[in-house]
Amino acid sequence: MLASEGAGEFFCGYVPPEWLERYGGAFWMNRRGPVAGNLLQRDDVSLLAERSHARGIPVYVTFNAPYYTPEQQEFLLPLVDRLAEESGIDGVIVSDVGFLVELRRALPGLPVHASSVMASLNPGMIDFLAEQGAGRVIFPRSLGVEDIAALGKAAAGRLETEAFVLNEGCVFEEGYCMTTHRSVGALCVQLPDVPHRVLPLTPEAAAKLDGEDRRPAREMMGAFRDWVWFQNGCGNSVTDRGIPNGPCGLCALYDLAATGVTSLKISGRSSSSLRKLSSLRMVRAVLDLVEGGASREEAAREAVAIRNTPEFCNAGYMCYYREKAS
């Protein structure tokens, strides 16, 4: 279904039962979740790879926990080897820089992509990844189109590039977020609803907080609440046409495509196939327009029309690439 609608690559999570026996839900094997959003049988990975390859589509498996201990790396290396040799996956996605080095040493023929959780923000990181033998850099959500263009230029000929285009926002910089969604949910989603107070750091600020800054301080927290809501998929909502609300880069596709970025990421995690399909169709429709020669304005207009939630688009907080928002 996704392949016939124009998906060019698949990525997935895989959590074997041995991992769950060791770590339960306490240490997630990847950022997708302890169980949900992952394949649990290697045979399923093999089947996914077989059917995808039949359509010429590569499959990547993500091992993007922020870090793995030495013991976990010892466990994972043979597992990744089997996925590559026996299940036929095309590469892995990692976040731990040390694990990247170790994978390249142990399995030099296996492409390794640097996850967005590696937070590749500058050209030094492009050089670092190229030296370590990464095959692709996945840009973090916080980068703007101009940054992506510049880093893509730095990566040209050495690394493939990938950028987010739809779904699954993150209020913080994921690569530097040391919190867990386990048991307690996302901290960012929680923050607007917990007791808080603005603290002045200087006597002058204390005086202003009682005066001219009282209202801006209140407005700041209101804006924060709105921003978090939009980044969290507008409360994880969908339109009556089944279109997922939330982080979106559709109207920036013209500029994004012009950067030469190799791949566009549609996040799916544990969402339904219908949501994935709906997301893919939206991106495909706008990308087809761009690749067919539409102007920036035409593509952006169509993106907003497809979403059909102009009030959300106009708010600005839903955009991945806000400097390019329509």
């Binding site: 770590y23 306490a26 240490f27 870090y67 793995y68 201990t69 030495p70 013991e71 976990q72 790396q73 731990d96 820089v97 040390g98 694990f99 990247l100 080095v101 170790e102 994978l103 040493r105």
Partner: peptide
Amino acid sequence: ALCRSGELAPGF
């Protein structure tokens, strides 16, 4: 695993 990092692994 929750009380240590991956920094003692060979790659790091």
